[in-house]
Amino acid sequence: MQDVLVGASAVTKDFHVGKITVNALRGLDLDIHKGDFLAIVGPSGSGKTTLLNLIGALDTATGGKVEVFGQDLSGMSRRERAELRLRSLGFVFQAYNLVPVLTALENVEFVLELRGEDGGRRATAMSVLEDLGLGELADRRPNEMSGGQQQRVAVARAVAAKPRLVLADEPTANLDSENGESLLKMMRQLRDEHDMTFVFSTHDPLVVAYASRVVTIRDGKIVSDIRKNSGEEAPGEGVEVRRKGTEPPGDGTEVN
């Protein structure tokens, strides 16, 4: 058995735009396990970002239940959710990840400071950058870095405080495949070496190729949940497909 970090059951999310109600999520069940390198895929507008925002405590579900680290998010105040994000989650966004007036090092340092860590923040931030091979970017501001470099620094910042779960919304969307691949390698290494769990929303086949598990959603529902054999996460190898509804109830085990 694996630890369940996130449990979503019968989750619905409605948006009201004027008189129109958009059912972005329509009864969605998903468990995310420790060590997952999970890609949520689906066409544009299928609800990927909405789902990620619910898991990331950035928004609350209309119906159903979302539990993160065993805590039910629906009962939490704005402030409590912000605290949860700050303490236990890492985020990588598609763009605007970094504070423009801060250097790479200062950007990393800033989240450590936000978390109230004192003493040796700078050294911690530097060692995080160096561990990820980003040492030479330390003194560069975002506008002095390429998009790929910025995203790698964003990952460094997301993981600096050693969160248990890192959420990334289309992290490679603005990158070419080479940069996308090096970003993915970096994150997978973090997963392997630091026991972190990653969840992506993506369109990018490359992310799918690197993922250990691929969840496809369409119209706010999960239509497939594919788990690759562990240890074999190279593109196209050892893939096992399970269609939604065919899996045994309460399934949370690795299939291999």
Binding site: A82, E83, R85, L86, L89, N97, V99, V111, L114
Partner: peptide, 16 residues
């Protein structure tokens, strides 16, 4: 706006 939204997303308090 985006920058503030990003920082708030990370869990930075509005007071900061």
């Amino acid at each position: 706006k985006h920058e503030f939204g990003m920082l708030l997303s990370l869990g930075c308090g509005p007071s900061r």
